[in-house]
Amino acid sequence: MTPAGGHWPIIAGMAAITYALRAVPMIAPWGRIDARIEQRLRYLPPALFAALIVPSLLAPAGTLQGGVRLWAGFFGMAVGWRTRSIPVTILAGLGTFALLRWLGA
């Protein structure tokens, strides 16, 4: 899980990439980005979020997995739909997980 030399080289790379993305258009002399690319990138956030959510909920270890974890996840998402609050949603999901485990499920 922990690579040799720690995570620092990757963190430094992430920092360089992220700063470059923010700084290059700000300090470079050229004008606007290609309109076609700009159009496509608009659909990146919903696609990326869904790509992160579905596998980590249904197949966290690479095979389909149900049980307590999945039910807690669904309940947390229902609470998220109502509240739109990240901390409340996390509390609901983890709380349900702990409760079901405690009940012996």
Partner: peptide, 13 residues
Amino acid sequence: IGLDLVFPLSFFV
């Protein structure tokens, strides 16, 4: 303790 549920729950919101 189900901590990995933090990812899908946060991204869902």
